[in-house]
C-alpha cells in the first residue's frame, strides 16, 4: 500500500554556510512519517516555538525543499512531479496558515480567495453552481454569505477570516488539510467553532488533517495521534491518549505539566526553570539533556533511538532503553486507529 503523503528521512538545515562561522541549525532532523491513503486521520504536530513545526509544514506543502530526504505524494517525489500531477497535488493538499491575514490580498474582496481556486480547479460546472458551492461551504463553517462576501479582509474579524480559509478548504475538498496554528490568534469561543469545522471536515468529508500547534489541550481534543517535536527531532509520538494523558518523554512531561488548566483547583506546580531552548547550543547526545531532570551519562554521548514503549507510542529517550527500538522507520506505524465513541459532553442545537 502506498501512502498518500510520506516524509522519508527529511532533514532541513538553515545557515551555517562556509563564511558564517557558525554551525548550521538543524530545523528538522531525519523525520519519517506518512499519512495513509485508505482512511482519514487527524495527526497533531506539537512542540515549543522553534521546534520545526512550520518548517515541516512548508516541506510537506512543497513550498520548501528538504536538505536531505524526500517528500512523496502518492509514491512520487514532489520535487519532481509536474503538469497534471503537480496540479492534483496542489489541489489535494491544502494549507491553512497561522495568520489568516497573510493568505489574503488586502486589495481584493474576500470572495477572491474562494472564487479564484474554484475556477482554477473547476469546481462546479457553471458560475451559478460555483456560487452555490461557495455559499454552502461558508454555511458549513457558520458564516453567513451575505455577511462575508463582498467585504474586504480588514472588514472581517480574525476568527471570520480564519473560517473563510476553512470554508475554502471545504470547497476544494482536498485529501489533506494542513493547518498551522489555525486558532492561536482567536479567543476561546471562536477557537471551539473553528476546530469544530476542522473536525467535521475529517469526520464527515473524509479529509485527513495535520494539525500543527503548541496547544496540547486542543491537540488532545481534535487529534487521534500526535508527534511531539523537540528542536527538529521526534521526542515522542503515538496516540493522544497515551502521549498527552500519560507522557513518557521528560520533554512531553514538561509540556503537559505546563498546560494552564482552565480550572483554579488544578494549579501549576513550581517549574524547575531550566532555561529557554534558544539559549542552548547544539548538543552531542540527546538534545534535551541540558534541560532534563533525569539526565544520565548515556544521554551526553549518543542520540537516543525511538523506543517502542507501548503498542501505540514511541519515545526517543534512554529511560526506556529496555523497550525495543522501533523496527520500521515510519512512526505512523504505531499510530492508533481513530476513536469515535469517546466524544461525549453537551451538544447544543
Amino acid at each position: 500500500m502506498t501512502a498518500l503523503l510520506e516524509l522519508r528521512n527529511v532533514s532541513k538545515l538553515f545557515g551555517g554556510g562556509f563564511f558564517s562561522g557558525r554551525p548550521p541549525l538543524h530545523a528538522l532532523d531525519g523525520i519519517t512519517f506518512s499519512i495513509p491513503e485508505d482512511r482519514p486521520t487527524i495527526t497533531a504536530i506539537a512542540g515549543e516555538s522553534g521546534s520545526g513545526k512550520t518548517t515541516l509544514a512548508r516541506i510537506l506543502l512543497g513550498i520548501a525543499t528538504p536538505s536531505a530526504g524526500q517528500v512523496l505524494y502518492r509514491g512520487k517525489d514532489v520535487a519532481r512531479i509536474s503538469g497534471a500531477e503537480r496540479k492534483r497535488f496542489r489541489l489535494e493538499v491544502q494549507p491553512i496558515f497561522q495568520d489568516p491575514f497573510e493568505s489574503y490580498n488586502p486589495f481584493y474582496k474576500v470572495d477572491h480567495v474562494l472564487t479564484t481556486p474554484a475556477r482554477n480547479f473547476k469546481i462546479g460546472k457553471s458560475k451559478a453552481e460555483r456560487r452555490s458551492r461557495i455559499e454552502e461551504a461558508l454555511h458549513a463553517v457558520g458564516l453567513q454569505p451575505e455577511e462575508t462576501l463582498g467585504r474586504f479582509p480588514h472588514q472581517l474579524s480574525g476568527g471570520q477570516r480564519q473560517r473563510v480559509m476553512v470554508a475554502r478548504a471545504l470547497l476544494l475538498r482536498p485529501r489533506i488539510l494542513l493547518a498551522d496554528e489555525p486558532v492561536s490568534m482567536v479567543d476561546a469561543s471562536l477557537r471551539a467553532t473553528i476546530l469544530d469545522s476542522v473536525y467535521t471536515l475529517n469526520r464527515t468529508h473524509g479529509i485527513s488533517v495535520i494539525y500543527i500547534t503548541h496547544d496540547l489541550t486542543t491537540a488532545y481534543q481534535v487529534s487521534d495521534n500526535i508527534i511531539v517535536l523537540y528542536r527538529g527531532s521526534v521526542a515522542e509520538a503515538g496516540s493522544v491518549e497515551q502521549v498527552i494523558k500519560q507522557p513518557k518523554h521528560p520533554y512531553t512531561q514538561l509540556l503537559v505539566q505546563s498546560i494552564p488548566r482552565p480550572d483554579p483547583r488544578k494549579l501549576w506546580g513550581d517549574v524547575p526553570a531550566r532555561g529557554d531552548a534558544e539559549a542552548l547550543g547544539e548538543a552531542v547526545g540527546c538534545k534535551f539533556a541540558d534541560r532534563c531532570p533525569f539526565v544520565m551519562d548515556a544521554c551526553r554521548s549518543a542520540v537516543p533511538p525511538l523506543h517502542h514503549i507501548d503498542p501505540h507510542r514511541v519515545a526517543s529517550c534512554f529511560l526506556y532503553r529496555d523497550s525495543k527500538v522501533v523496527a520500521e522507520q515510519d512512526i505512523a506505524g504505531v499510530f492508533a486507529p481513530r476513536a469515535d465513541a469517546a466524544r461525549t459532553g453537551p451538544v447544543r442545537a
Binding site: D196, T218, R261, R343, T344, G345, P346
Partner: peptide, 13 residues
C-alpha cells in the same frame, strides 16, 4: 467553550 484534558468533548463556541 473551554476544552479540557479530562474528556473529549464536543466543541461548542
Amino acid at each position: 467553550s473551554l476544552p479540557n484534558l479530562e474528556e473529549k468533548k464536543k466543541f461548542i463556541g
